[in-house]
Amino acid sequence: MSDSPVITQGALEAAHHEHPPYQRHHFETIGQQNDATNFAMWLFLLTEIMFFGGLFTAYLIYRNWYYPAFVAASHQLNIVWGSANTAVLISSSFTMAMGVWCAETRRKSGLVLALVLTFLLGLVFLGIKTIEYSEKIEKHHVPGFHYSIQSFVNPASDPVAAAYGDKPLALDMAGKTELYFFLYFAMTGMHALHMIIGIAILGYMIFRARAGAYTSGHVTFVENFGLYWHFVDIVWIFLFPLLYLISRHQ
């Protein structure tokens, strides 16, 4: 069994390289490891785009078909809470970016602070989302659960619709608001799910960061999580105008 025409030479030097402890054995260099994991994260975000893409397609089609229903239904969303949430999320992206910077420049307490802030802002976002959802539940605007079209066939009875001066929708069109609310819940729900996963990972990261795991040069995990967090943020940046703003003045 001596016939082993493995291509010899080269790589000998590589074998004697000093490895940082966090370099996984199957990578030649730490640079390759960082490259590979970053690239993987970008690809993963690409799959996420395709995932949300299905919902955006549905939204665009139905908005086109049932325009009046979508306008009236979107008036039911609370623009104040929505804007507040956008601000919260953008701030959290800022703190996350600061966290990545702190990790790169090996500032442990700065990193922990940034992560904690991001964590808290994430929770605030979810809190506001809960308030918004409970408003919908009270008004029976949750599709499939005793959905009520009262606000749309009789806008005068609904203070929000009345404030917008909505005209009553015909029964069949009013029924289509359920589709809007379904898309609203599906898209923001899917987004919130991503937030919850992100917050859980953040909790784990805070724990590890306090032990100094990310401030000894191994920053890819923080960087990649940063990418994820910014992605979730960007999804919201698309959701907010599409769901809240686009029909405000109609």
Partner: peptide, 19 residues
Amino acid sequence: LNPSQHITQGFAPIMPTYQ
């Protein structure tokens, strides 16, 4: 079945759906 999307010009959207 979905009258309100098919209102002829000059008429009010008052037809009920027969869905």
